[in-house]
Design a protein around this nucleic acid. Sequence first.
DNA 1: GCGGCTATTTACAACGTTAGATACAACGTT
DNA 2: AACGTTGTATCTAACGTTGTAAATAGCCGC
Lengths: 327, 327
Amino acid sequence: MAERAGVSIKTVSNVVNGYPHVSPETRLRVEAAIAELRYRPNLSARNLRQGRSGVIALALPDLAIPYFAELATRVIAAADQRGWTVLIDQTQGDRAKERLVVSGIRAHLIDGLLFSPLALTGGDLAARVDSTPMVLLGERVGRSPYDHVAVDNVAAAEEATAHLVQLGRRRIAAIGAQKAAAGVTARLRLRGFRHALAKAGLTEHAVAHVAAFHRADGATAMAGLLTGSPAGPPDAVFCFNDTLALGALRTLLARGIRVPDDIALIGFDDIEDGRYATPALTTVAPDKSQIADVAVDLLASRLSGTAAQPKELVAGHRLIVRESTLH
Amino acid sequence: MAERAGVSIKTVSNVVNGYPHVSPETRLRVEAAIAELRYRPNLSARNLRQGRSGVIALALPDLAIPYFAELATRVIAAADQRGWTVLIDQTQGDRAKERLVVSGIRAHLIDGLLFSPLALTGGDLAARVDSTPMVLLGERVGRSPYDHVAVDNVAAAEEATAHLVQLGRRRIAAIGAQKAAAGVTARLRLRGFRHALAKAGLTEHAVAHVAAFHRADGATAMAGLLTGSPAGPPDAVFCFNDTLALGALRTLLARGIRVPDDIALIGFDDIEDGRYATPALTTVAPDKSQIADVAVDLLASRLSGTAAQPKELVAGHRLIVRESTLH
DNA sequence: GCGGCTATTTACAACGTTAGATACAACGTT
DNA sequence: AACGTTGTATCTAACGTTGTAAATAGCCGC
């Protein structure tokens, strides 16, 4: 211990923690000893004593999915502002792993949990007994008693679809519907898609289902729309996220179909790749920084105990028109 | 405490840790109490007692950069295999932040550190005093006494360039050189590029410098090569990573230049985006899973004290030929 | 039926920190 | 000169866990 400074342990603690009533010379002496002995406070001991760790977990499906990577970047930055460290749990969208995360594997190691579930059901959440504060990212799951941040998916999807209608397209398809109870996001976006078509007095040209929101799924789904539809190909497609759209784009270009001339394409998420695709991808951009900031703020309120009812916050979004829908 | 089971703290500990000499009925009783009271061992206390936390840090520039996101995914998976949790530090490639990471901000919170530096100098590493085991990812930095995993950048860059030569291209340029002492990776790839050209008896057509390895830098650099070069445009370009290449591709397609017909393009990293670009990007694929596995293994040896000399391990790579260089 | 063995359980101490109470000294006031 | 006040430093206990040593009980062979 750094009593090389000829001082009690507590005084060292006081210096380290900036306690005001330490004489300048003592402080200097202690700081010198700290530097000399390369003393580092043991965070485990501090955590034990204080009952909190300064670490939060961010649980998401997979960092290799650009949307989540971009979100994680912002969450880490927001947490950093508060002096928190972020630990990542990848669930692969697997229900068993998601339940594990929610059940509190990391109890007492993390102060709070930011969780972006994919497969979790309302029942899973209701059955949760772990008391670690948790904030959900993304769609609402059941009637869960947890704080929650998401964009208004129905409205956003409606805007995206309306944009296609405004271009004068009439044979409008969607890619990204999901069978499983899992696809809450998909369900909301599909609803928005249908609202917009109904408002415009159009019927949906086709809706392609996918197993996941990956490029490969988008590519396959688009191939299906081109050949499988008895009514012929669509003239515009709303993909429920950007990776689906990039996969679809790939299929179209490979077959010499012009985008947007023959088929207009719009995505969702505004990932970096979409901006540099050719043609650049029109998309709905959720305000990821806002999502991250709000989520971290919510968690902070939970931690300080000042939060009351679970809140459901809506983050902003906006349509970004790029080449894939320019006429 | 779970002495609801009518048993000492230590016995609970013994049950939790699978100590063999616990009678079956006691074990059952304790397990029942644990379930009933939802008891969770306090990891901070355990860490304090045992002197290790089961947490390692992965420090990298930015998760929003696809290569690092893909690498992080694999590191987390590899760490998971060993029961370790991964905490992420984003440095933004900023030297001050990198020094902070290396100096041990997380001392006693993490058992080890996997670090992918960008701006750090050999001097910074030599000045390191923190004793947390560390394994470096990416290029060797100075003559540092640390374990270290990377692909053979010179050889890989040479292969990439040789591939362009084999296509019959003769006006071969590179994008990605860096002025700063920082760009160790860039320097090695540039060296490989020049080796290959020298072997083929060619002179370099042009070498574009970039501030960073982002899409925007690639786009700008390519524009420069097209207009700025007195010798005219190149007929092939080796980009030092895939994001540079995707940026460059965007510039080319926007100007109606055909890839690969007019200009062939090759990247480095094999990120997912490149596979779905049109034309799909030829690239050098480092074995990311191997890098992650080996790095985690190295760290494990350090932690168990069985490691001797610092090791410098070379991960595999291979050329993946796709449309952007097909003739 | 006693000594020595094994199986099971417990007691104690320690990991390094910090909140709170306490000790001490110097000072100005009455 | 006795008093409270203030600033500085120390003392004590506690956070929850686990390694070690020790206690207890049952069992065997003689």
